[in-house]
């Protein structure tokens, strides 16, 4: 049971080519879709949840052709859009109940139990009578995931779920997603925050400018960045020059000088010491290289 995307293209009426020949297989489990803003992630997500029609290509979700069997696909779908701030005047539990009803949960008692359990699950039970648009940003996100999960969907698409959340909320949110991924569901997590993926996803894809530039396990990406991350100690004067020559990941002051982490195949003219990469390093390295390649092409 997976999602198969073949030769997927999306050209907006204004001529913007948001997706270029995307081919992707997304298996069960948590799948991260990483990429900078404007890479086409949201377009891809919106096509996957049948909010947007692709210009060409095919998408099969659990064997259902998305273009022809939208109803079946929508039945097994949970979606948390990127922007999730402005609500109609519903109370928290009403919002969830409405979502549940529309997903086909018909039995009133069962639905009420599910809503209460879900509110409990996302830590909103105490806020159940509050109006959804009066909740804090984190609570809204949690309500968002609750509505996406209320009907036990097989495919859960979450678009930039942690942007704008404080670190604590972000961790809570990731954990919540991880819990769900215990089932056989596919969870697609689109984000530009590397940390979201590194801690949760077994597989990931990297998107840039409407194309998939990498598909695989996060470890695979890490491996590619091994030996490409350097720590250099420089003086204040040299800091600017380093910034011009290499992508700088972090700059930490150390007495009169600075400890700078850069990503590069090799560092010349400085006393550079290799360090073990994390996914963020790998992402930067990958983006830099791809971008370079792209420019060279």
């Amino acid at each position: 049971m997976s999602i198969l995307i073949k030769n997927l293209n999306k050209v907006y009426p204004n001529g913007n080519r948001a997706l270029k020949d995307i081919n992707l297989e997304i298996p069960a489990g948590m799948f991260g879709l990483l990429g900078p803003n404007g890479a086409g992630k949201s377009t891809l997500m919106r096509i996957l949840v049948a909010l947007l029609e692709p210009s060409s290509g095919e998408v099969s979700v659990f064997g259902y052709n998305l273009l022809k069997k939208r109803k079946e696909v929508r039945r097994i779908l949970g979606y948390l859009p990127q922007d999730f701030r402005f609500f109609a005047g519903y109370r928290t539990h009403e919002f969830l109940d409405y979502a549940a009803r529309l997903s086909g949960m018909t039995g009133a008692r069962k639905r009420k139990q599910a809503v209460d359990a879900m509110l409990e699950n996302v830590g909103l039970f105490d806020a159940r009578e509050r109006y959804a648009n009066k909740l804090s940003g984190g609570m809204k996100r949690r309500l968002g995931i609750a509505q996406a999960l209320i009907h036990n969907p097989k495919v859960i698409v979450v678009d930039e779920p942690t942007s704008g959340l404080d670190p604590e909320e972000r961790i809570k949110f990731r954990n919540l997603l991880s819990e769900v991924s215990g089932n056989d569901a596919i969870i697609i997590l689109s984000t530009h925050i590397v940390g979201d993926i590194s801690s949760t996803c077994k597989r990931m894809a990297l998107m840039n400018s409407g194309e998939i530039s990498f598909v695989g396990a996060p470890e695979e990406m890490l491996r590619r960045a091994e030996g490409k991350v350097w720590r250099i100690r420089v003086s204040g004067d040299e800091l600017t020059e380093i910034g011009n020559r290499y992508p700088v990941i972090s700059t930490i002051p150390s007495g009169m000088s600075w400890d700078v982490q850069v990503v590069a195949d090799e560092v010349e003219g400085y006393d550079a010491e290799p360090c073990p990469p994390n996914l963020e390093h790998a992402y930067v390295y990958y983006m830099e290289n791809n971008l370079n390649l792209w420019t060279e092409d």
Partner: peptide, 18 residues
Amino acid sequence: KRDKKLDTSEIFYVRPLS
């Protein structure tokens, strides 16, 4: 207008109702 203005409307659009 509300559907257009509220970003949460889409979560209802992805439900299986026609």
